Computed example of a mutant assay.
Amino acid sequence: MQAQVKSQNIAVFGGAHIDRRGRISGATAPGASNLGAWFEEAGGGGFNAARNLARLGHRVTMISPRGGDPAGDTVAAAAEAAGVIDRPFTFLDRKTPSYTAILENDGNLVIALADMDLYTLFTPRRLQQRATREILAASELVLMDANLPQETLAALIGTAAKFCPLRAGIAVSPAKVVRYRDCLDGLDFLFMNEAEARALTGTEAATAEEWPLLLRSAGLSGGVVTRGGRAAVAFDLEGACLATPPALSALADVTGAGDALASGFLAARLAGADLSACLRFGMAAAVITLHSPFAASDEMSQDMLEQVLQLVPETEMLS
C-alpha cells in the first residue's frame, strides 16, 4: 500500500530546544564515572515531528518559545535545514530550553534532565495573536506536545477544534502527559509509550489489547501506545489494531523514535490511509530514526518510508 503524498499545511506547537546526549562507552556503572561521549543537536518532541513531516513533503509551521541565545540560533538553523517554517516567540533575556540525557551503550535511556522553564511563558493569550490564529485556520493538522502548560494545551485544542479537521498530541513523558487529562476529548490521536499511558489512566499494568478500552474510558477517541520491541497498539473511533516492530540488530539512538512514529502515522492519515496502514507507516518512520544518530533523521523521505515499510509486519485487527 502506498500513501499518496499531497502537501498539506501543518501547525506544530511545543518543544523546540537543545538536546544533549551522553552515551556511555561500555557497561553502565551506576554511581560512578563512566567513559563516553557527548552529542548535541536541536530537538524537542514537537520539533522532531515537525522536521519529519516537512521532509515527508508537508508545509509545516513550528511555533514555540525560544531564548535569545546561541542555542536558539541552533534551533533556527535546524528548522531551516529541514524546510520547517519557523515562527518562534523569542524571549531575548531568557535561555532556550534544553534536554540532557545519559544513554547506555545500546542506546537505551539511563536518566534525563529537562530544563524547560521557558515553556511556562507560552500562555493561552499567545494563541490569540492574529498571526497564530491565521496559521491555525489554514492548517489541516495541528500537532502539539506536552512541554506546553496544561492551560495552553486546553486552549490550543479548543481553538484548533474550530478550524482544523485533525488534532494530535505527543505525550513527551509520564510526568507531562497528564497535562492532557482534562482535554482528551478534543484530540483525535495521542501518541505515548506504555509508561505514559499508565500515568494518564492511573493503571499499573495492562496488556496491549486492554489499552484502547482504558484510554477510551479516559476520554480519548484515538491513539497509539508503543511498548518498546513488543507489539504497539493503535485505535480510533472505528477499531483497534496491533503491530510488532521489526527486529533490529542494533540501535543508533532511541531519541526521537516516538516522535517519528507520530509523524509517519499522521502523514499516512492525512493521505487517507486506514488505521492499520497508519500504524505501519508510523513504525517504518520510527525504524528510520532508530538507525540514525539524530533525533530527526535527515534520511527521512517518502521514498525511504516506502522502502522501510516492507520490513514492518502486517497488523492484527482487534475486536
Score class of each variant (00 low, 15 high):
His58Lys: 02
Arg59Gly: 10
Arg59Glu: 12
Val60Asp: 05
Val60Gln: 05
Val60Ser: 07
Val60Ala: 06
Met62Ala: 14
Ile63Tyr: 03
Ile63Thr: 10
Ser64Lys: 02
Ser64Gly: 11
Pro65Gln: 09
Arg66Leu: 11
Arg66Lys: 13
Arg66Asp: 08
Arg66Met: 09
Gly67Leu: 01
Gly67Val: 04
Gly68Met: 02
Gly68His: 01
Asp69Ile: 10
Pro70Thr: 08
Pro70Phe: 06
Gly72Trp: 02
Gly72Pro: 02
Gly72Thr: 04
Asp73Ile: 00
Asp73Met: 13
Asp73Arg: 13
Asp73Glu: 12
Asp73Lys: 08
Asp73Thr: 14
Thr74Leu: 13
Thr74Arg: 15
Thr74Gly: 09
Thr74Cys: 10
Val75Phe: 07
Ala76Lys: 06
Ala78Tyr: 01
Ala78Glu: 05
Ala78Trp: 01
Ala79Pro: 03
Glu80Gly: 11
Glu80Gln: 13
Ala82Met: 07
Ala82Ile: 12
Gly83Lys: 10
Gly83Trp: 04
Val84Thr: 05
Ile85Leu: 13
Ile85His: 14
Asp86Val: 06
Asp86His: 12
Arg87Tyr: 11
Arg87Gln: 13
Arg87Asn: 11
Pro88Val: 13
Pro88Trp: 02
Phe89Cys: 00
Thr90Arg: 09
Thr90Gly: 05
Thr90Phe: 00
Leu92Trp: 00
Leu92Met: 14
Leu92Tyr: 09
Leu92Val: 05
Asp93Ile: 07
Arg94Lys: 13
Thr96Phe: 01
Ser98Val: 03
Tyr99Ala: 03
Tyr99Phe: 13
Tyr99Pro: 02
Tyr99Asp: 03
Thr100Lys: 00
Thr100Trp: 03
Thr100Gly: 03
Ala101Ser: 09
Ala101Cys: 06
Ala101Glu: 00
Ile102Ala: 08
Ile102Val: 12
Ile102Gln: 05
Leu103Thr: 06
Glu104Arg: 14
Glu104Trp: 01
Glu104His: 07
Asn105His: 14
Asn105Thr: 13
Asp106Lys: 01
Asp106Tyr: 01
Asp106Met: 08
Asp106Phe: 03
Asp106Glu: 09
Gly107Gln: 01
Asn108Val: 08
Leu109Lys: 02
Leu109His: 05
Leu109Met: 15
Val110Pro: 01
Val110Gln: 06
Ile111Pro: 00
Leu113Asn: 07
Leu113Gly: 13
Leu113Ile: 15
Ala114Val: 11
Ala114Pro: 08
Asp115Gly: 05
Asp115Tyr: 05
Asp115Gln: 09
Met116Leu: 14
Met116Asn: 07
Asp117His: 10
Asp117Thr: 04
Asp117Phe: 09
Leu118Asp: 02
Leu118Asn: 04
Tyr119Gly: 04
Tyr119Lys: 01
Thr120Arg: 15
Leu121Ile: 04
Leu121Met: 13
Thr123Cys: 03
Thr123Ala: 07
Pro124Gln: 05
Arg125Gln: 12
Arg125Cys: 09
Arg126Cys: 09
Gln128Ala: 13
Gln129Trp: 07
Gln129Cys: 11
Gln129Tyr: 00
Arg130Pro: 10
Arg130Trp: 07
Ala131Ser: 11
Thr132Lys: 05
Thr132Glu: 10
Arg133Met: 12
Arg133Cys: 10
